[in-house]
Design a binder for these strands. Structure first.
Length: 399
RNA sequence: GCGCCGGUCGGAUAGCGGCUAUUCCAGGAGACUGUAAAUCUCCGGCCCUUUGGGCAUCACUGGUUCGAGUCCAGUUCGGCGCA
């Protein structure tokens, strides 16, 4: 993998670049489409490519459990197995320490609106007590979400599985903490993640796969400036090919946290912001030095009836759309908008037809993927701020 | 005409003497950020001084009872059977 920076913005941390992988280039900034189980839900990979996606991201934990990483290797890696003939990423499985642990247990998300002190006290003590996950120094013990069987991931095992899956860019094994975790716990988890990063890197470098697959280290530290900076220094000094910024955020502080980190990370390597992708977050991330994003939001909310428009999100199942014969977004050039109306999509949801998920996912992914492309273009033209302001003004209905 | 069975929210249901009448569907709204998500949450009689409170309600009328959707009688509507 190689990363070339084409242009740096003078007035912010933003940059335009190209990541070269064995399966093609990614023009950055870019939105990476999530296909956890080696499929983007409701879509064929041809549909995903047609809407403009440059790369895909799958998940180590899910593919290890089903169908098994050995099988994917045997099939000819993920490129052959699932016909993903474009650049690909795999997440390390570390996020599941959070999503199947404390997040499930306490029903909290990774991005928090309101950090309440009472919650912090309640949750800090039981941070690792999720029913499906146990964390220790060596690794993480999971219960399978499929059959309840017990499985263990260590940094070495995660990398081995990711080698078997064969994505172009893979991630070090890390621990994602709850935004409600105490400072002390965030520090403890961050330090563990650093030790795991070193082990992930050493294992990776010892294998032949490291010549084809790039390994990104992950910066943690929650929403605390000192921890984020310490994590960026520690991970940034290691010989990774690029970096992921992970963990939990206070909704208001995502961009500042990203900025703290990117001021420290080496400039010449790509930075991926893990799991963030609301329109406003894309602008905030990019101007703070993020090169790639992945996020489930466009596809998940699509399946649940929420669709992006230039004027904000709409819930297409609302009764007022049942006889609305306009496009989802009047300015959208996606396949869905060029062929179907709001009324039709609304009908498909009410009738519980599968096509609702497909057409909605195409639209939302197109919206986000191409928004990032527009942002990239605005950067090349030196009009980032102008584009950002006009987009967000309209999207958030603020005048 | 006689007999039997039944009428509970828009639909379908639970409840078989007790305190807040259940659940599912349809309907309305909201949530979702490295996917246990085609998922989840909330609303659904009326009124008020609405973080609460009050009054109703199980076809209708009357009765038994401390207490009735529930038991009894009649009425009414519907289904089935027999003439």
């Amino acid at each position: 993998m190689r990363f070339n920076i084409i242009k740096e913005m003078g007035n912010s941390r933003g940059r335009v670049g190209v990541i070269e992988t064995p399966h093609g280039n990614i023009e950055t900034p870019a939105f990476i489409v999530v296909g956890t189980k080696a499929t983007v839900k409701a879509l064929t990979v041809e549909q995903v490519k047609d809407l403009g996606a440059q790369a895909l991201l799958a998940n180590t934990y899910h593919l290890y459990l089903q169908p098994g990483d050995d099988l994917i290797k045997k099939a000819g890696y993920i490129q052959k197995f699932s016909n993903w003939d474009i650049p690909s990423f795999t997440d390390s499985g570390g996020f599941q320490a959070f999503s199947l642990g404390i997040a499930l247990n306490k029903k909290v998300g990774k991005v928090s609106d309101k950090i309440e002190k009472m919650d912090m006290v309640d949750i800090a003590g039981s941070e690792t007590s999720g029913d499906l996950v146990k964390i220790d120094e060596e690794g993480i013990t999971f219960k399978s979400i499929i059959d309840g069987s017990s499985h263990r991931f260590t940094p070495e095992r995660s990398i081995e599985i990711q080698h078997n899956i064969g994505a172009d860019i893979i991630f070090a094994f890390d621990e994602c903490t709850s935004p409600h975790a105490s400072y002390e716990y965030q520090r403890e988890a961050m330090n563990r993640t650093h030790r795991w990063a070193k082990r992930s890197l050493e294992y990776h470098k010892s294998k032949e796969a490291s010549k084809k697959q790039a390994l990104f280290g992950i910066v943690q530290g929650g929403r605390h400036k000192d921890l984020r900076e310490e994590s960026a220094r520690t991970i940034g000094m290691m010989d990774f090919d690029g970096f992921g910024i992970g963990g939990s955020f206070d909704k208001q502080d995502i961009y500042s946290a990203v900025g703290w980190v990117n001021d420290i990370l080496p400039k010449g390597k790509p930075r991926h912001l893990l799991g963030i992708g609301e329109p406003a977050d894309l602008f905030g991330g990019i101007e703070n030095g993020i090169d790639t994003f992945d996020c489930v939001t466009p596809t998940r909310i699509a399946r649940n009836g929420s669709l992006y428009t230039r004027d904000g999100k709409i819930n297409i199942t609302n009764s007022k759309y049942s006889d609305d014969f306009e496009k989802i977004d009047s300015e959208c050039g996606c396949y869905t908008c060029s062929h179907y109306t709001r009324a039709y999509i609304s009908h498909l949801f009410r009738a519980k037809e599968m096509l609702a998920a497909t057409l909605s996912s195409i639209h939302n992914l197109y919206f986000i993927v191409n928004l990032v492309k527009e942002i990239r273009q605005s950067m090349l033209e030196g009009k980032f701020d102008e584009f950002k302001n006009s987009f967000l003004k309209r999207y958030t209905h603020l005048t």
